[in-house]
Design a protein around this nucleic acid. Structure first.
Lengths: 137, 137
DNA sequence: AATGTTTTGCAACCCCGTTGCATTTGGTTA
DNA sequence: TAACCAAATGCAACGGGGTTGCAAAACATT
């Protein structure tokens, strides 16, 4: 568990119980997490507000990134590059399972899209919904 | 404006003032609309709840479709096919302008994405954020 | 015009996320 | 280690967004 404090230190964040714990949740989870998931996992360990603020801080530092979903709930995910090198790529696509609700970061890159003349892109989100491997059997 | 009643009739919906008016807003707008936009446009003509229910009905009937945005607000748009033929394609991509907040339905089709084995897609949303033509000058 | 069905408006409610402020904790220096 | 300052937490309260139940009104049909 030494790695967790390293990640926080590298991002110039004070090392607190809530940050360590929430970061740990992400490292242990293979999918994305919503605020509600974290609240459930932590029981009444932390205040709701602390969780919101911690997620916000992590997003600002690039430790996690947000995933827009078609049902209009925000999810957060920690991706490989962040854990390893401390910097962030969000050129991958996301998959949201209609059955189990799990959100995955896929390896596939975001394909290039053709924009009208005069338009410029700062960010591209691709969210595929459907059935994941576990729910297809 | 005979077309508006036709669209409602074709979708087996009772023709009411709110439905006609809200459908008209979509036909007149070139971008997508959020619930709040419609509420502003209509003043206090309709109840908030009526707007919510009307949008819900239109989505169920396939008259409009939802657009997930990276800032976690739902927008709705009416696309060409619906207006003309009464059926729905959502294989196009969406563009959200960071400056003016307008959401556009672009002509570009959703590019095919590679999914892991065992995964199947029911829907793909592509949302590009950036600067639109009007805000680039 | 009369009937039954659908839609609307109102009130109340719940959930999500934010803000302000006092208290506690973490980091730093002596 | 003690003391200090800065930063993070917890609490309470608030606001917006969206939903639900039910009575009143509007719609479609005969």
């Amino acid at each position: 568990m030494a790695g967790i404090s390293d990640i926080l230190k590298r991002n110039q964040l004070s090392i607190t119980d809530s940050r360590k714990k929430i970061l740990d949740y992400f490292l242990q989870s293979d999918g994305a997490l919503a605020h509600a998931d974290i609240e459930k996992m932590s029981g009444d360990k932390f205040d709701r507000v602390t969780i919101y603020r911690t997620l916000q801080t992590f997003v600002e530092k690039g430790i996690i990134h947000t995933i827009p979903t078609s049902d209009n709930s925000v999810k957060y995910a920690l991706c490989k590059d962040e854990c390893v090198a401390g910097h962030h790529h969000d050129d991958h696509i996301h998959f949201l399972c209609d059955d189990c609700g799990t959100t995955y970061c896929l390896e596939s890159n975001v394909p290039p899209v053709q924009l009208p003349i005069g338009f410029s892109a700062s960010r591209t989100d691709v969210v595929v919904s459907g059935k994941c491997g576990k729910c297809s059997n």
